[in-house]
Design a protein around this nucleic acid. Structure first.
Lengths: 205, 205
DNA sequence: AGACCATGCCTAACGGTGTTAGAGAGTCAA
DNA sequence: TTGACTCTCTAACACCGTTAGGCATGGTCT
C-alpha cells in the first residue's frame, strides 16, 4: 500500500501525541504506517526534514483563523493565542517547532498578518519587524516552558503540584519568592499568557 | 585519576562549544576526561542529570553580576541582558537550558532579583510573579531562536545570509514582509532584543 | 596484621537509534 | 518483450544511553 507524504506527517503528529517526542522514532512511525523504517527515507531525506514538515503542519491552522481586518491589537492578540493553541495541540509541539527553522508558507502567512497589523498601528517598518519576531519568540518560549512543565509534573493528578521542594524555599534568603509563593504554585498559564500579550501590546504603544 | 563532579560539568560545557549538543555524547565526554563512558554513571545517575547540572552552571554567573539596588527597570533590563549572554555563552546553550526544568539555587537567585524589582515597581504580587516568568520566557524563546538561526545559517561567512529563498518572497501575497525585507534579512538580534526588553518594561507601566 | 568494605575505574554487552546499500516486486510506456 | 521508474523490502553499519559485573586501591575495624 502506497503511503502519501501528507498522511505520513499527519500520522507522525498523531503518534507524537501518544508517545511524545522521545518515542517518536522512525521505526515507531513506520510501524504505525504498516511499513518498514527505511521506506520512510524514500519520502523524506532525513528525520529532520520530517520534523520540519510536522512543524509546518502544526501551525497550518493559525493564519486561517485570524480576522485580519480587526483592530491591530486584536489581530495580534488572537494571533498569539492561536499560535500558542496550535503548539499546545500536540504533545511536545513547541519543542518540535523550536527545533526547526522553516520559512514555509504557513510561517510567512503568520508573519505577514502580524507585520501588517503592526504597521497599521503606526510603527515604522524596522520596529514593526522586530516586534513581530519578538512576539513570536515570546509565544514560543512561553509554550516550550509550559509544555516542559506539564510533561515533568503534569502526570501527577494532584492539583497542587510541587516541583522539587519549592514549597519550602528559605523565606529569609528569598523573601519576594516566599511572598509570591501562592502565585508561583498556582501555575496559571492561561492568565499568565494573557498578561504577557497585554504587556507586550501596551509596551508597543 | 579521580574525576571531580564540577570539573566534569565544566568539561561538558567546553565540549559542548566544540561539538554542539548533538555531538555531546557520554562517550565523547568520557574521552575528553580520559575515562571510559560507564565511569560517568558513577558520578551522575543519567545524562539528563548531567544536562541539568550543566544548565544550572550555565546561568550561575547571572545573579552575581546584577546590581539589585539599581532602579527596578535597570535591574530587569540588565538581568535579561545577562541571562541572554549566559545562554549565548555556549553553543546550543539555550536549547540545553530549555530541556531542563531545574529549580536550583541559581534560578531562584535570578527569580528573586527579578521579582523584588517588579514588586518595587509597585506591581501587585500576582502580576509581578507572572511578569517575572514572562520575562524569563521571552529571553529563553528569543535566545533559542537566535542560536537556532546561527547554527543553521551562521556557518556561512556571508554577511547577507538568505535562509531558504526568503529574498524572493511574493510581494503581492506578502506585501508587508516584502516592504520590511531589509530588516528581516539584517537579523540584528542585539537591537531586536533591546527593543523587546524595552517593550516589555514599558508595557508593565 | 588480617579482614572488610566503599570508592572509582574498567571491559563487555544489551537494546535501541538514524541511516545506507542493494535487492526485488509492481506498473506503465515503447 | 523489454526497459525504466516507483516504491517497499531485508540486512546491516555505526553510534547512542545505559547496565552488569569485575578489579584494583586505600582506609577502617577487629
Amino acid at each position: 500500500m502506497k503511503i502519501e507524504k501528507p498522511a505520513v506527517v499527519e500520522t507522525a503528529l498523531a503518534l507524537l501525541d501518544e508517545v511524545g517526542s522521545d518515542g517518536l522514532t522512525m521505526r515507531a512511525l513506520a510501524k504505525a504506517l504498516n511499513v518498514q523504517a527505511p521506506t520512510l527515507y524514500w519520502h523524506f531525506p532525513s528525520k529532520q526534514d520530517l520534523l520540519d514538515q510536522m512543524a509546518n503542519a502544526l501551525i497550518a491552522p493559525v493564519a486561517g483563523i485570524i480576522d485580519a481586518d480587526a483592530a491591530p491589537d486584536e489581530v495580534l492578540r488572537s494571533l498569539a493565542v492561536e499560535l500558542r493553541k496550535a503548539l499546545l495541540s500536540r504533545r511536545d509541539g513547541a519543542r518540535i517547532y523550536a527545533g526547526t527553522f522553516v520559512m514555509g508558507e504557513n510561517v510567512l502567512n503568520v508573519a505577514e498578518i502580524a507585520l501588517s497589523a503592526l504597521l497599521r498601528k503606526g510603527l515604522d517598518e524596522r520596529t514593526a519587524t522586530d516586534a513581530m519576531f519578538n512576539l513570536v519568540y515570546f509565544v514560543l518560549g512561553f509554550t516550550i516552558e509550559e509544555q516542559g512543565f506539564s510533561s515533568r509534573w503534569g502526570s501527577k493528578a494532584d492539583a497542587s503540584v510541587e516541583p522539587s521542594d519549592l514549597t519550602k524555599i528559605d523565606s529569609s534568603r528569598f523573601p519576594a519568592l516566599a511572598q509570591s509563593l501562592d502565585t508561583v504554585l498556582a501555575w496559571d498559564f492561561d492568565s499568565r499568557f494573557e498578561l504577557g500579550i497585554r504587556t507586550f501590546l501596551r509596551g508597543l504603544g
